[in-house]
Amino acid sequence: MYDNKRNIKDTADDTKGEEVNQYVTFLVGDETYGVSVMKVQSLNEMIEITHVPKARAFIKGVINLRGSVIPVIDMRRKFSLPPKEYDSFTVILIVEVNERLVGMIVDAVSDVVNIPLSDIQSQINYSARVDTSSIEGIGRIGESLVVLLDVETFLAGDSLTEG
């Protein structure tokens, strides 16, 4: 687990010149995704998840996050990917959505990256597993592409606004 605040600060200083956005990138299946660093509260190692009856399909259960009970979402289920055994790389990414904390179980977290705005393509003609409305854009890091998720719409779209 590490604190993202320091990261923001450090990198913000040395990227004064050009406008860049910072993303935490992670793997689900063979795809790399990114979430704005501002939305990420922390990274947690896999812990025991309490199953909740009649939960929505993609909700794996609830966990104790420093005294609060928060839901965790299995991103594989969310992307309709076959389940995979959790291993030492599996991470729960805690993001803030509509002032609520939600955990996302991802296969692995790769990095915190700076992507200059010029390298972000908002015109999306990319076949992703996600609805295009919840994609902020496609970022380019060297040769590889990152699907930049807008967590608010991604998670709020079909679930978090209900009830």
Binding site: K54, A55, V62, I63, S68, V69, P71
Partner: peptide
């Protein structure tokens, strides 16, 4: 601890609590 109500439609659960070992119990 209350559970956000989007999590489940079950009416059999009124909330959750954190046990001494850190686990969550409904």
């Amino acid at each position: 601890k209350s559970l956000d109500n989007f999590i489940t439609t079950s009416r059999s659960i009124s909330g959750a609590s954190i046990l001494g070992d850190g686990r969550v119990a409904l």
